[in-house]
Amino acid sequence: MSEGIENKKVPREPLFSKKNKKLVTEPLADNNPVTIQVLGICSALAITVQVEQGVVMGGAVLFVLVLGNLIISLLRNLIPSRIRIIVQLVVVAALVIIVNEVLKAFLPDVSEKLSVFVGLIITNCIIMGRFEAFAMANKPWPSIMDGIGNGLGYAGLLILVAVFRELFGSGSLYGVKLLGSNIPGEEWGLYTMGYVNNNMMILPPMALIIVGIIIWVQRSRNKSLIEEH
């Protein structure tokens, strides 16, 4: 009943209104969950050694985030606020188990490399953060848009970091040997000229440094992001 009255007063918002579009575009850059809100750093450091892992992980989080946001948003008026964290956890856990099983079935190699980190999506602060901050207070459609935006923002950063780490750490991109091969006896490309892969890129500290550099570049390009002290 009350909804009907509301609909009369406020004209129905178009699906791709400016506000809704902003929900998708903002987390991609100026409100990126990783570089601005500094959430989900652990997984960004752990599974960005190769682009493939980054893509799969980003996809998994995107899936969980969009569906989870939708479910929480649909349930938002039914969830007693005292036990809302438990309900949210149940939703994430269910979705993560689905993702994990699908990965095991169709992408066993990647699934093995990602190991526990797929399961650890449950504890990814981005997801719980979006549930709490957005889906609990918004309608399903904006929640989906918000999930897409944040999921893509996370996946984009993961892939960006992974590009640097895989290119300089293993000399390849998405498994394609771009810089040549360093297998003894059949070297070609840059390696014949004395180039050596940078081992530091494989180690997690370098991922932290790369994320730091990305944050640095982003903030020096957009001064409004710099906090006042």
Partner: peptide
């Protein structure tokens, strides 16, 4: 330290 961890063989 960077060289030591990045290019240990050198």
């Amino acid at each position: 330290a960077f060289l030591f961890f990045a290019y240990p063989t050198s």
